[in-house]
Each structure stands twice: as structure tokens, then as C-alpha cells.
């Protein structure tokens, strides 16, 4: 109120607070853990799984194909697989639910729109087998390859783009080894090798996790 009801002020206050900027890691903080296992005193950040719609929209954003236009009619069930509209505009009902979104826990009317944060193998299948992710992987890899042919640079940029993280030496080394293994698969091309790498990063735990 004192700041003219500024939302910006409020957001800044929240995101610059000590609590908000805490790490979600418990490394070296076993003592805190012993005292307050449920983190009731907010001595660390709670890692969060991003919501179903955000998972899909984030994949499309990275691929550069998300249609960010606002308003208009909702997308019916049979058009959703091809659609690049934001997930917000997807029609869903008690009977018809988008199978990709549902597996990442939808907001349910009967539960006051609360969402669970389940972790089930079906999510791994959706992220590793869906056309959505496989198509996006190829597009993301293409864009990255346009600006660099150097493997190391490609790996670093892919990590930054997909996971918002700079890879450490272990991550670079294992990524290089995987790229070499993929190149040894006779049917693979340079494009498919790089798409497969991006696909692996989209399946990294931290792609769907906020820390």
C-alpha cells in the first residue's frame, strides 16, 4: 500500500528476500534437517515440480514454436496434438483430458484446483516418447547448431538454454561421451545426434524442477 499498491515492488520484495533466494540443497545442513525435517521454518527452498501446462509451454517455447497469441476459441481435443497454442487454451472436461497434461497432474475442480506433484513413470514416458518432445528436441538442436559447430560450446549452450545451468566438468565429460556413443550408431546423422542430446536434457530432472 505504502508503495502505491505496486505489484512490481511486491515481486521485488519477494524475489530479493533471503528466504526466496535460499538454495534447495540440504548439503552440509544436516543439523537443520535434524531439527526441522519438514522445513517449517523455511531454512531452505522447497524444490517444485512445474505444472503440467508449464511443462508443455516451456518445451514449445524452447523450440520457438509456441503461439503466444491471446484470446480466441479453445482448442478442441482432436486438434491439440498438432496445436502450438498455449496449454491454457486447451479444452478439457471430465471425460476428455489431454493425455500429456494429465500425467503431470492437472488442476482438478473437485479439489479446489489444487494440484498434486506426483512423480510416476508415466511422466518419464511422456517426456521421452511423445512427439511433442521429440519434435521439439530436433528444433532446439537445429537452432543451437546454427550458431556453433563446436561440441563443447554446443553442450554449454544446451545446458544453459534447457536447464538454466552451466555444466561442470563432470557434466561436460559425460555429455561428450554420450555424443561419441550416439555418433557410433550407424543410422545416426549429425543432426539426430544433437537432437538426441537435447532430448536427454529435456528429460533431466531439473528441466521440470524449480530449485
Amino acid at each position: 500500500m505504502e508503495n502505491g499498491w505496486s505489484m512490481k515492488h511486491l515481486h521485488r520484495l519477494i524475489v530479493t528476500s533471503r528466504t526466496y533466494r535460499m538454495s534447495s540443497s540440504v548439503a552440509g545442513l544436516e543439523k537443520n534437517q535434524a531439527v526441522d525435517i519438514d522445513n517449517q521454518h523455511w531454512w531452505r527452498r522447497e524444490p517444485n515440480r512445474i505444472e503440467s501446462q508449464v511443462v508443455r509451454d516451456a518445451i514449445l517455447t524452447l523450440a520457438g514454436t509456441l503461439d503466444s497469441s491471446m484470446g480466441g476459441p479453445s482448442v478442441p481435443m482432436d486438434k491439440q496434438e498438432q496445436s502450438t497454442r498455449r496449454s491454457l487454451y486447451f479444452n478439457h472436461s471430465g471425460l476428455q483430458r489431454n493425455s500429456f497434461l494429465t500425467v503431470f497432474d492437472e488442476a482438478v475442480v473437485e479439489e479446489c484446483y489444487r494440484r498434486a506433484q506426483s512423480i510416476v513413470p508415466q511422466q518419464a514416458l511422456a517426456l521421452s516418447n511423445s512427439g511433442l518432445v521429440l519434435d521439439a528436441s530436433a528444433k532446439i538442436a537445429d537452432q543451437l547448431s546454427n550458431t556453433t559447430e563446436n561440441d563443447l560450446e554446443f553442450i554449454e549452450r544446451a545446458f544453459r538454454l534447457v536447464l538454466c545451468n552451466t555444466p561442470d566438468s563432470f557434466e561436460i565429460k559425460t555429455s561428450q561421451e554420450a555424443l561419441a556413443a550416439w555418433r557410433a550408431v550407424p543410422e545416426n546423422t549429425e543432426e539426430s545426434v544433437r537432437a538426441q542430446f537435447v532430448w536427454a536434457l529435456l528429460n533431466h530432472n531439473d528441466f521440470v524442477t524449480l530449485r
Binding site: L125, N129, S130, G131, V185, S192
Partner: peptide, 20 residues
């Protein structure tokens, strides 16, 4: 759902990825 890859994806390439 999503019981198999919806685009061509060699099993061998997939398992290299799973290891990574």
C-alpha cells in the same frame, strides 16, 4: 500412454540417452 516413441527412435540411441 506414450508406451513407445511417437517418432522413429532407435532403441540403441534411446538407451544411450537413458544412461546419460
Amino acid at each position: 500412454n506414450f508406451g513407445k516413441a511417437e517418432r522413429p527412435f532407435l532403441h540403441e540411441a534411446q538407451s544411450i540417452g537413458m544412461d546419460l
